[in-house]
């Protein structure tokens, strides 16, 4: 086993759970998170030789995971659009039929409301509200200014409030 493999294995050991939960808060379903986490680590392995030590490993990994999750959500949306199926019922089925979700009814409604948001707003909301990240951390991961993130989070909150009011 060479140095690169040893380093990769150490990253797997240290970050697999944190990255899994990060992805899970973005895509919600365990099956999707499981597929994605493997794709993410394949990307990490391929990019590891070019990773510069001076950058923050945590930020680098989270950026890869977030970008992959956004791409995944986008692909899913396109697939749904191409199959002429409405997004909302499909999403609702995912969370309703997810055996690995133990939340109560209100949490279920909240997730459904989050799933209706556009991908970027959804990511901003999940990172801030569920993962409780600071705007500065989010700014580093998403490469967006703090001001833009605050605005995006505010809009997302308003949409979610409206959506939950309608469903209750």
């Amino acid at each position: 086993m060479n140095d690169l493999e040893l380093r990769f294995n150490q990253i797997v050991k240290d970050y697999k759970e944190r990255l899994y939960w990060h992805v899970r808060t973005l895509v919600f379903s365990h099956e999707d998170a499981d597929d994605l986490i493997q794709e993410i680590f394949i990307k990490v392995w391929n990019a590891l030789p070019s990773f510069r030590e001076e950058s923050n490993l945590y930020t680098w990994l989270y950026r890869i995971a977030t970008n992959e999750s956004i791409n995944f959500l986008r692909r899913k949306k396109i697939r749904a659009a191409l199959s002429f199926s409405s997004l909302t019922p499909q999403h609702e089925n995912i969370i309703d039929g997810d055996t690995y979700f133990n939340g109560d009814e209100l949490e279920r409604e909240l997730i459904k409301a989050i799933q209706k948001l556009p991908e970027k707003q959804r990511v901003v909301f999940s990172l801030k509200y569920i993962e409780e990240m600071t705007y500065e951390e989010m700014s580093e991961i998403l490469g967006t200014s703090v001001g833009a993130l605050k605005a995006s989070y505010h809009i997302a909150c308003e949409k979610i409030k409206k959506s939950i009011k309608l469903s209750l």
């Binding site: 990769f8 294995n9 797997v12 050991k13 697999k16 759970e17 899994y20 939960w21 899970r24 808060t25 365990h30 499981d34 986490i37 493997q38 680590f41 690995y100 979700f101 133990n102 939340g103 949490e107 909240l110 997730i111 509200y129 569920i130």
Partner: peptide, 21 residues
């Protein structure tokens, strides 16, 4: 929503580590 609202299959992270390595 808290992360403990979600769960994973038993022994999932051990299997995941062997898959990823």
């Amino acid at each position: 929503i808290k992360k403990n609202s979600y769960s994973v299959p038993e022994g999932y992270f051990d299997n995941l580590e062997s898959k990823l390595t």
